[in-house]
Design a protein around this nucleic acid. Structure first.
Lengths: 95, 95
DNA sequence: TAAACTTGTTTATTTTATAAACTACTTTAT
DNA sequence: ATAAAGTAGTTTATAAAATAAACAAGTTTA
């Protein structure tokens, strides 16, 4: 009846990050920070977790002399998100 | 853009409990335990939290000499659930 | 060249969830 | 009658997660 919800996505911030990346394909650290209202530290940790899980790719470069971190959703991330949404529906609309 | 998700409901077990109670009005401890696959300890703790928050009512009696705990959803619980679902949709289908 | 700002990371603290151990009784078998 | 096993939970201890605070490594501006 209740499928285990992917613990990687069952986190407010990580879900928001993946949600954004799903529609944008990729986004910068500062953009994600602004949109999610997360603190830098928290965002850094959660991005790292998503990367470790293979849900996103993280590219670090420089732009105008400043570090620039760009995040991109992966196939695995998209699939996990789809599955999460599917599983959630069983909670929201129990059959 | 991303509304804060009610932390009381953003827990797999508590969401499952409330989800069940929404459709059943009320349920016994053992029933909830079986349906959610939770351990007794975890279920006990989470029910207490939901009760403290006023999302459910808990009635303790006896049946056939054994303790019997019956849980019932409250108006507040129903409203919180509806709001949670609404908020979640912003994550699932960002606009 | 010092002060303030950018873009993050790391470490420490708090909160939350889960598991293990325990309570208090009841039933069944000996 | 009493020991062993079962019911229905609660409490306490541990593990995991989220968050906040402190730090790093530079850049820009006054």
């Amino acid at each position: 009846m209740f499928k285990e919800l992917d613990p990687v996505l069952h986190s407010q911030l990580r879900l928001a990050i993946v949600s954004l990346l799903i529609s944008l394909q990729e986004a910068e650290f500062t953009y994600l920070k602004e949109k999610t209202k997360a603190t830098s530290g928290n965002l850094s940790v959660q991005l790292d977790k998503l990367k470790t899980e293979g849900y996103i790719e993280v590219n670090k470069t420089f732009r105008n002399n400043y570090p620039l971190t760009v995040c991109k959703i992966t196939k695995k991330g998209i699939d996990a998100f789809d599955q999460y949404v599917k599983d959630l529906k069983a909670y929201i609309n129990p059959s």
